[in-house]
Design a binder for these strands. Structure first.
Lengths: 336, 336
DNA sequence: CTGTTAGCGCTTTCAA
DNA sequence: TTGAAAGCGCTAACAG
């Protein structure tokens, strides 16, 4: 208990100055082999571990990067984090994960914590309730590199790594039309957020382009929950003109919809086609197996990290704002 | 860009000593209201943020706790982390998450990183490949409080928060027998790990107690993957005496099993009953809806944090080793 | 090859 | 009510 060994302890032990110990520990070439060995042995024996806080303070450089996400228990974020951690640890970085729980206030607090900790870099996907990006701008004022992925603040000038949501939605609508559906509704989130807004725009534009007159966009302006799906379905079913297919922005909603359909005796895809944006594993296990638009998470994670790393290394390049856009993959299953 | 304001900058600005600034910032009662206001205003204006590294170094106390888990993309861990973060942030702690990816080596590295960072406390669930707990003992040597949850090292004397795996397995076997199944196989992980070992023991003992002669335990000694489930099922089906029910330790395996069953024309639960230990959402959406043994994650998270917090506060109480054990919930659905 | 000095940003004595 | 001095653990610049 209470083994807190410092370089001074080692120094005292073997009768040299603590700077010598510091040098030996870092393999400075100017230290004699004998003392170097002595120091190393002694450090080993005493169970020395460098104090990272002291190093951070001294060197003003921190090998920790932080990820800010709405909720780790969404498959897409969990997998993104997992992949990103792999990349980061290969480069000697430690990754800390922070959840906003879709709260603007919490997001601001988190960013403040990161500034105080002077983290080396930040990768973020903003909460559904975030509109203003002042907190992220402060982060960059402090010289902390920032990269957005998926969801971002329009008023923050940071690199973005994202999926082409407009194109994806267009593809979804075209696909559903080809499958014989013509009354397609879109269940989405707050369209003031880039991802939902662009999907909805892609949806609307494509309906128009294809000459489909039915259109109905329902927004959920908070964190998605299963019951929202059930609620929306009932609402749609109460109306005079029902949809014959749904383009859904989250599998959580689809889960609620599926359960409600079972209750109401709605058959999928005969009565209602479903196409969901989702990276959930097990989408193919549900009944019926769900068609999905999948994000290329590997690409997103790899690219986000690569861009962040380059920013961290050339600490000052504010100039070019290299962003990346990838495409969804459409996976056809039984639900459409 | 490059706004790094320190208390000295503020001090210079308003012509006082930097210690005065420090005091004012922390609301020291001995500072006059006027200077206090001046300092606060100035700090605000200059965008001052305290340097947490300096604080940590100075105060030797860190408001960060770390969670070590095998893989964040397992629902149970994701939800545990999510809940724990909530509790921690309420108490002013920041949570960092680390994944071992079921690698012993990575786990050791992570623990070393945490020692170097002098984190305030650690909550851990060990990797499948970890047998020795020397690294965790070093952590405690450094005076860093540790609490295990779910999976732990037997040779480390730290509080443990877990589920009664023996009892859960016993309950599973009894339940399956009551449902009319008699040839029950157990698909599990490395039984040298506490959770798998105890489940397997509970399984075997209960078979014996109930007078069931068929018993077959298959272990997967690495991270579970879907294909393992398919593989194990085929293996079981090749044998002369087939099981009529499976007690499965992870939904990932069950996913593989379900797909293989579909291919092979095995009907569930008619040909084969299934009961899985799982906290996956959407277990009720798959076909057929899966019966599960669920862990009380809320209790686990809340208790783990509470114990850790008490350890952090009374930094020295090595004496009483308060652990907790909870029970599984059995949720019956169509698969059994 | 090794020791001295100074300082990263902050707080805590001890004096005034 | 404020200032001066010292130090948390470490490294870098400059001597020797």
């Amino acid at each position: 208990m209470k083994t807190k060994v410092t370089i001074k302890d080692i120094a005292k032990k073997i009768q040299v100055h603590h700077t010598t110990v510091s040098r030996a520990l870092r393999g400075d070439s100017r230290i004699s082999e004998t003392t170097k060995q002595q120091v190393l042995d002694c450090a080993q024996k005493m169970g020395y571990e460098p104090n990272q806080n002291a190093l951070n303070l001294r060197n003003r450089t921190i090998n920790t990067i932080a990820i800010i996400i709405p909720n780790i228990s969404h498959e897409i974020f969990a997998r993104f984090v997992s992949l990103l951690t792999d990349h980061a640890s290969k480069e000697g970085f430690t990754v800390s994960i922070f959840q906003t729980k879709e709260s603007y206030e919490l997001e601001q607090e988190i960013v403040q914590t990161l500034i105080r900790n002077r983290v080396g870099g930040v990768i973020a996907s903003i909460s559904i309730n975030t509109k203003e990006g002042a907190h992220f701008n402060r982060l960059m004022d402090y010289g902390i590199p920032l990269v957005f992925f998926d969801r971002y603040c329009k008023d923050v000038n940071a690199p973005k790594v994202e999926v082409n949501n407009y194109k994806g939605a267009a593809r979804a609508v075209k696909y559903l039309k080809n499958k014989g559906f013509s009354r397609i509704a879109h269940l989405t989130g707050n369209t003031e957020i880039n991802v939902f807004g662009e999907r909805n725009k892609g949806y609307k534009d494509t309906l128009a382009a294809l000459g489909l007159s039915f259109h109905k966009s329902l927004q959920i302006k908070k964190e998605f929950e299963e019951q929202d799906g059930a609620f929306l379905l009932k609402q749609l079913w109460d109306e005079e003109e029902k949809p014959d297919a749904l383009f859904v922005d989250s599998f959580i909603l689809t889960a609620g919809i599926l359960k409600e359909c079972k209750q109401m005796g709605i058959h999928i895809p005969q009565d209602l086609g479903l196409l969901t944006i989702s990276n959930e594993r097990f989408c193919d296990l549900v009944e019926p197996a769900q068609s999905v638009l999948e994000q290329p998470i590997e690409d997103l994670a790899e690219t986000s990290f690569r861009i962040l790393l380059s920013r961290i290394k050339l600490e000052n390049s504010t100039t070019k704002n290299n962003s990346s856009v990838f495409d969804f993959s459409l996976i056809e299953r039984e639900s459409s």
